[in-house]
Amino acid sequence: MKALLALLLLLALPALAVEPNERLADPALEARARTLSRGLRCLVCRNESIDESHADLAHDVRVLLRERLLAGDSDAAAIRFITDRYGDFVLLEPPLKTSTMVLWMAPPALLVVAFGGVLLTARRRRAPPAPPTAEEQARLDALLKGQE
């Protein structure tokens, strides 16, 4: 409960995310900054992007991100500026690399496997019984003969 309280306290702090004084004058640049900061995780608050977070560090990152954009960085370069220091952990969308291959590939792979499995069972169930082989036919004939 303590943890819940503490976290709710954080949530409830009235200093809310992006502050007016952080914003860039150029609306296009500011829009880019907003988009980028929605994809960056606030390190100290967990599961919140820096765009939503009121934490001090999130504020710093927002300001620095805007500095980079003002300095003419591309989106990728501005993001790299932050991941260079804080690692891929700050990216809310995990980049595709060896260690995240399973994560990204699993959903489509599961779908394909599940579809394949269902189609296979459906086909097997509907397939008429295979015609007897020559050997089976011979034995069948022999049996039938025997009955007569």
């Binding site: 390190l43 100290v44 560090l57 710093d60 990152v61 620095l64 220091r85 804080y86 690692g87």
Partner: peptide, 12 residues
């Protein structure tokens, strides 16, 4: 202002 801390990757 914590600017150098940022370069170090300080988060607390």
């Amino acid at each position: 202002d914590g600017r150098i801390g940022f370069d170090f990757g300080v988060y607390g």
